[in-house]
Simulated scan of single mutants.
Amino acid sequence: MTALRPERDPGTAGDQGSSYGQPYGDSGAFGDGRYAEFPTGDADGPYRPPLVDDETVALRIPEPPLRRTSAEAGPAGDGSVGGGRAARRKAAKRRHGRRGAPRTQPAGAEADEQPKAPLSRVEARRQARARKPGAAVIASRVMGELFITTGVLMLLFVTYQLWWTNVRAHAQANQAASSLQDDWANGKRNPGAFEPGQGFALLHIPKLDVVVPIAEGISSKKVLDRGMVGHYSEGGLKTAMPDAKTGNFGLAGHRNTHGEPFRYINKLEPGDPIVVETQDKYFVYKMASILPVTSPSNISVLEPVPKQSGFKEPGRYITLTTCTPEFTSKYRMIVWGKMVEERPRSKGKPDALVS
């Protein structure tokens, strides 16, 4: 049921529960003596409707605006409801684009979209010259490529010298030793004079675990670079053979690269055995002395009684020569030994090769 009740001015003091039914001002609810008709309240009290008079010009406290989601916000983006579903949809498209992603335009985009005036021929040439590298840049690039190429070539050369020459020389020396032992086993006797590069004996240095063929001559290409040691047998460097009654048996070998059979002869000590094996006999020497550094032209170390060796009278000696310091050929290192045993092969190996 509804009833006519004069409304009370909200600013009037009193109990709100009994304030309804009072007129607004002197002229009633609407200022002209009329009264507002509202539904009655429930048992807890009268119902007070919101003040929604569109006709009055009186001041009043506005109600808080309705909160909407971003999809329902009006075109102004202030949370107000748009003019309808279609209007809200259009507003969402304007804000977020067709796929819903915000449209952002970088600074200066409008200026970039403007057509640019074509460059003059002079300006185009100037810009083309500016893009080309200068002479200094080209020179630096060429130098850099040359340095890189040189470095790669040096690395390959070092690898060849320190690794590959040893691999190849060991293979060649092992093949020569096997061939020589096969000839001995088959009874093939070599003549008393050997051809340059021809193998005729084996050198054993037990302390250094060295077993290497001995060939005639000291040619780098035919002997030394093939991993063998060479016998001084030509011209003013001619030395005796091991079976000579007296004399100095001189040998040369690489200390580094190409098999490097004499690399560690500096570690030999007096008394260490050095054995020369031939087709008929074993010649056992004992290391006697060492000359760490001498000139390459000091051929007196190969004399029958070698100087600076400590030997004072003729005997049966062996001389090992090699380069020093390591990886250079500036000087020579000399090791001498004195024969202590001549043993026929028929009696078996000497103790130096058995123990």
Rank of each mutant, 00 (worst) to 15 (best):
Q105P: 01
V122T: 14
G97K: 00
V152L: 09
F147V: 14
K93S: 13
S140Y: 12
S120E: 03
E123T: 06
R121T: 15
Q127D: 06
F147T: 12
R98C: 01
E123R: 12
S120L: 03
E145P: 05
R125M: 08
G97D: 01
R125Q: 11
A130W: 01
K116F: 08
P133D: 05
G151D: 04
A91C: 00
K116I: 05
G108Y: 01
A130G: 03
S140I: 12
R95E: 00
S140C: 10
V137A: 05
R98I: 11
S140H: 09
R94N: 09
T150L: 15
A130R: 09
V137Y: 02
P106R: 05
R126V: 06
P115G: 00
F147P: 00
H96K: 14
E110Y: 08
H96I: 10
T159G: 14
I148R: 10
V137W: 02
G108C: 04
R125K: 13
K132H: 05
A128N: 03
V122N: 12
L156N: 07
M154N: 06
K90Q: 12
A111Q: 12
F147I: 15
K93L: 15
K90D: 07
G134S: 03
P133S: 02
Q127T: 07
G134P: 00
A139K: 07
E113A: 06
A91G: 05
E145D: 12
A136Y: 10
F157R: 03
V142P: 02
V137K: 06
K132C: 06
T149D: 08
E123C: 03
R103C: 06
V137F: 08
P102W: 05
G97P: 00
P106K: 02
P115K: 01
A101G: 13
M143Q: 14
R131G: 07
E145N: 14
M143T: 13
A91F: 04
P133Y: 09
R98Y: 10
A128C: 04
P118L: 10
G144S: 06
R129A: 11
I148L: 14
Q105F: 09
T159F: 15
K90F: 03
K93H: 12
A135V: 07
P118N: 00
R126Q: 03
G100K: 00
G97E: 05
Q114G: 09
A92Y: 11
F147G: 06
T150C: 14
V137S: 08
G151Q: 02
R103F: 07
V152C: 08
